[in-house]
Nucleic acid binder design. Structure first.
Lengths: 212, 212
DNA sequence: CCGCGCATGTCACTCGGTGTCAAGATGTCA
DNA sequence: TGACATCTTGACACCGAGTGACATGCGCGG
């Protein structure tokens, strides 16, 4: 899944980046920029990795030293979302009802989209309408679900290997996430993500909080 | 998505299959058999399409005339499930509560698994633990969700483009399907699919039937 | 018997992705 | 300053998935 060297690793000391690290980050950004630009305009299959490399001024081989696959460039955009959800969930107070905790957790990536909507919208649209990308994205979501289920099990003293609740609750939360993302994408960003998320969670809250 | 000619089309007259049609079916079955056998034992990436073709006695090119991709062979095994779910849902009586209708709909593929558990189990396991296959499978599920949402909208007089309920309900039902499949797979077929499905639906029923 | 269509095999090609190696840049220590 | 180690890159060869084009062989209707 990961390229050869650690790609764009979060630096231990944000202030003092080594020169090499900054150079790596520069190339990575250049590649990402070029790729997103090309893919969003020409479509996923119509762009070759050679093209992306050329646009960024590096070789195809170098591209693959930064990104595991062509899909990876795009999905990376959404990748941190998963960890964001999980982190937020663990940070929520223990006594909080599942619906509230999960809504706040899912809000993290949604807010990120709502924030820089210009670019995020185009990338989300690219993902949702490109089968190969959608597949990768859903694959990520499946991972998130595992992690969320584990965390929910921890919060409520349930074993995800025995009780169905954790996995189901995580699945419902991500279903809401998915519905919101799609509606936001289809409406060209016109619909308010916060409102969509609230409405989606209103639908699943009765099931979420009926934990026994 | 689909190979060149219509692959294994359901014949209009099951009794009188043309010779050509039977030949196609034969090759398709042979290919499918060989592929599933090889993939399940050696793992997805360790098997080349040339190998599969050789095992079935045809060329690589012919393989791709029957299956759109290597993933396709496996996913096809689960593909009809989607149409099965949808067909069952449309067949359910109109007055039925959503939870009941959806439970019966999702039961169709689950029952198919429970039926020929020997082979189905191995294929399901192959899919769930091979990233590329899982991705394809999830992609299919996304399609099912669209269709189910449309059908649910029809049943309840809601526009899936306006109300979130249809998509959310479809998503919850598929979340249950997913949880059941995974638990069944992880338990090596020991857990009872019917029981798992009932328990999964018990969790989402309050949300499903709270349609307004 | 002849031609038509269909399935197949062969070949060549594109493209995603990887292994390998040699060369250049940089950083360090003496 | 010079020798050495490390890291990044480009170039090249290679594999495997997937496709297009063409030729061949077979069954079927005339």
């Amino acid at each position: 899944m990961s390229p050869d060297p650690a790609p764009t690793p979060a630096p231990a000391t944000p202030a003092a980046l080594s020169l090499a690290e900054r150079k790596r980050r520069l190339v990575s950004d250049e590649l990402s920029e070029a790729a997103l630009q090309l893919l969003a305009t020409k479509g996923f299959d119509a762009v070759t990795v050679d093209e992306i490399g050329a646009a960024a001024g590096v070789s195809k081989r170098t591209f693959f030293r930064y990104f595991a696959s062509k899909e990876d460039v795009v999905v990376r955009f959404l990748a941190d979302m998963g960890t964001g959800i999980h982190a937020e969930l663990t940070a929520r107070p223990a006594g909080e009802p599942p619906s509230t905790a999960l809504r706040h957790a899912v809000w993290v990536p949604v807010a990120a989209c709502a924030g820089h909507s210009e670019r995020a919208l185009r990338v989300v649209q690219l993902i949702l309408r490109t089968p190969a990308l959608l597949a990768r994205f859903l694959e990520r979501q499946a991972e998130w679900r595992d992690h969320l289920a584990a965390e929910l099990g921890r919060r409520h003293g349930l074993d995800p290997e025995i009780d169905l609740y954790p996995r189901m609750a995580a699945g419902m939360a991500l279903t809401a996430f998915d519905a919101v993302l799609r509606r936001w994408s289809d409406s060209e960003g016109a619909e308010d993500p916060a409102d969509l998320l609230d409405r989606a969670f209103a639908l699943i809250t009765p099931a979420l909080d009926a934990v026994g």
